[in-house]
């Protein structure tokens, strides 16, 4: 890569670092892993910068790279689910600050969705991708994107309702 290309790459990456990290965090819910994913993505981007920069929507392509990097990482053996003695982190719904509990709840609920559905939700509603862009990035049909997005949102509502019912039961019928 020549110097001008590299400067252009550097500027692109530096200004997009935070949005990319947030996207990665919404996918994996761990800032360490999010930084790893972004590092992997911008490394690949460097190698293919000349080709990528000529694309119509570079931002969409890079977020697609990031999402696919996450899906690839999840398939690796050390990323698979493991049994543990510790109870997984859960949002404390009785946290005194309702807003903080709510936002933590959303991340917990999001992390309970299957990976492909979570990727669709993040790309469609955080990255604001169109159905077509989401389908192209994930290599699936537009019909699948629509159904995954609808089911994802429905799952979030259902999980939220179950959580609220559980809280009511714990509180003796009062929410």
């Amino acid at each position: 890569m020549n110097r001008a290309d590299e400067d252009e790459y550097r500027q692109f990456v530096t200004t997009r670092l935070e949005p990319l990290r947030v996207t990665a965090y919404l996918l994996c819910r761990n800032w360490h892993t999010a930084d790893d994913l972004v590092s992997i993505t911008i490394g690949k981007l460097y190698r293919h910068w000349r080709r990528v920069r000529a694309m119509e929507n570079v931002d969409a392509y890079v977020r697609g790279m990031l999402t696919n990097a996450w899906l690839d990482e999840r398939r690796r053996p050390w990323r698979r689910e493991r049994s543990t003695d510790d109870v997984p982190d859960r949002a404390d719904a009785e946290f005194p600050e309702a807003a903080l509990a709510d936002r933590e709840d959303l991340l917990v609920l999001l992390s309970q969705l299957p990976p492909s559905r979570r990727a669709v939700i993040v790309l469609r509603f955080w990255c604001d991708f169109s159905v077509d862009e989401t389908a192209r990035v994930l290599g699936i049909s537009t019909g699948t994107v629509k159904s995954q997005a609808a089911r994802g949102l429905e799952s979030l509502r259902l999980l939220a309702a179950l959580d609220r019912a559980g809280i009511r039961a714990r509180n003796g019928g009062e929410a």
């Binding site: 919404l26 936002r103 933590e104 959303l106 991340l107 993040v122």
Partner: peptide, 8 residues
């Protein structure tokens, strides 16, 4: 989503 992420 931005509010859910909170502090970066």
């Amino acid at each position: 989503f931005r509010e859910a992420v909170g502090e970066i």
